[in-house]
């Protein structure tokens, strides 16, 4: 007679074999004392493992774990909240920029003229000679060559009232934003 293997007996006790295999094992066990004894020996291990109970914890582990969390876990800045705030801020900046750009007036200067101006400025820079007594501080600004440069201007149709209102609004938003960022909230260290 061919005896049951250890694998078959283990799978039988683990209830992982299919119904057909289980029936075949049962039939074999009914007629084989050796395999029946082996199964009982193995079954005892299952029973012995069952008697190992849960033990009681002597003290609360929570304070130690929470202290370790703050010491060992790196601060994760890129949280969902932070991403949402960054998204809103980027959107507002984009909107502001799109509103302001049409009003920006850039002076019309040809590229060749701009390059010529720059070259002349550097050429004049190289000709500067400083020969002053050691006790006198040189007036560098007056020695520097004049650069014919026209800055871009913003031609906004703003009145004084507009400017004051805008300033007050910006200050208000700044205070509110700081309050949101600095308010007390659950830590987001991860």
């Amino acid at each position: 007679m061919k005896h049951l293997t250890d694998n078959t007996l283990n799978e039988y006790l683990d209830h992982t074999s299919d119904e057909r295999s289980r029936k075949s094992v049962k039939d074999h066990l009914n007629g084989c004392d050796a395999c029946q004894t082996k199964l009982e020996e193995l079954g005892k291990i299952f029973a012995e493992l069952q008697i190992v109970p849960e033990v009681a914890l002597k003290h609360d582990l929570t304070p130690g774990i929470m202290t370790r969390l703050n010491l060992e876990t790196p601060v994760r800045i890129w949280t969902r909240t932070f991403a949402a705030q960054a998204g809103v801020a980027s959107g507002v900046l984009y909107w502001l920029a799109s509103q302001l750009i049409p009003f920006v007036k850039i002076p019309q200067v040809s590229l060749s003229k701009a390059v010529f101006e720059l070259q002349s400025w550097f050429a004049q820079l190289l000709t500067i000679q400083v020969s002053l007594p050691t006790w006198q501080i040189p007036d560098i600004a007056s020695l520097l060559p004049k650069f014919n440069y026209q800055a871009p201007t913003i031609n906004l149709p703003f009145s004084t009232v507009h400017v004051i209102s805008l300033t007050v609004t910006v200050i208000f938003l700044w205070v509110v934003a700081n309050f949101i960022l600095l308010r007390s909230r659950p830590q987001v260290q991860r």
């Binding site: 033990v55 929570t62 929470m66 659950p186």
Partner: peptide
Amino acid sequence: RRAASGDQEAFAEIVRLHQQAVFNVAYR
């Protein structure tokens, strides 16, 4: 859900609830 979003108070509560079971795994 709160612990997953970084709420340490929620995680502390999870520790209190499951420390016994986790300790027993390690004790075995």
